[in-house]
Amino acid sequence: MIAVLGLLLGILVGLFLEPSVPEPLQAYLPIAVVAALDAVFGGLRAFLDGIFDDRVFVVSFVSNVLIAGVIVYLGDQLGVGGQLSTGVIVVLGIRIFSNVAAIRRHLFHA
């Protein structure tokens, strides 16, 4: 319950404060968001599997975000930032889809 409230609180704060993203972070924020989403869906799946652990969740959340950022940064330095961002998004998307499929099986048995 409190987790859903936290999500709503974050969205509201982001909408009402209207902060602008600092220039150096602009390339990383979307990737970081998608990586965090992947961690969240993974956490939800683990919870439904009965193997949820908050420490694992925190570590996977932070490491997902960090690794995504590092990959994009590396891609920028190598001159293939755009392609590498696309690759990261695709991989994370596939993971999100498979996690959601597992969640769906748990909730709807289908």
């Binding site: 319950m1 409190i2 609180l9 509201l12 965090a36 652990d53 925190v58």
Partner: peptide
């Protein structure tokens, strides 16, 4: 554990917004 998850989700919501 829920508090930590809530904090991380708040961060995620903020960043997404």
């Amino acid at each position: 554990g829920q508090l930590v998850v809530a904090a991380l989700l708040a961060l995620l919501g903020f960043a997404a917004a």
